[in-house]
Nucleic acid binder design. Structure first.
Lengths: 93, 93
DNA sequence: CCGCTTGTTCGATAGATGTCGAACCTAACG
DNA sequence: CGTTAGGTTCGACATCTATCGAACAAGCGG
């Protein structure tokens, strides 16, 4: 993930669905959420797709727990590589 | 421009060409640049397209001066609406 | 007035992206 | 073991996007 470029991250965050996902994750104060717990108005398939994009961009981290996949934001890594990014995202605009 | 959403800005910055444009503008310390002055490895048409996208997203501002169009970043507005964004962009990664 | 410089616009094209339903997979639960 | 719940994968599709060359427009400099 050290080689993720800014434009890739920007690209990942350029969709309002994905922005919503990350914002909800950030709001859950470190507690990982199951994909299902995130409120979104799209189908299962689309939802899965968006999580995949975020994962590929190095923005989220997913850990399987039984049949659920618990997801959280890679806060530390992102803050290190792109300081200010998460703050920017969480300030709702 | 008060109603530009973050995902629109992100979308605009999700292309490495456009990121390069904004970075060069930021580096020119407030001096507006002609589109031509910005170093890019794309055709005139494509270049024009990218400037248009940035303009629409409210990121740059263009003023005609003879046949040239002098462009600069809308620093103040962006800093106000999305604090940290420009810093994030200019830190080369 | 002619040609050059600077950009814009148009039409075309190839590739990426968002979206879905349906089929599938795999743990957990009875 | 059969069923369900949570996700993924697979086409399919429509839309968007980046890119280009060519044609156009509009100042400017001689």
């Amino acid at each position: 993930m050290r080689d993720v470029e800014l434009h890739v991250v920007m690209q990942a965050m350029s969709d309002s669905c994905r922005l919503a996902i990350v914002r909800q994750l950030l709001q859950s104060k470190g507690r990982a959420l199951a994909c299902n717990e995130v409120k979104l108005e799209v189908s299962k398939a689309t939802r899965s797709h968006h999580f995949e994009v975020l994962r590929t961009a190095g923005i989220i981290f997913t850990e399987m727990e039984g049949t659920k996949c618990m997801t959280s934001v890679r806060r530390a890594e992102l803050d290190k590589r792109f300081p200010g990014l998460l703050k920017l995202i969480s300030s709702r605009k």
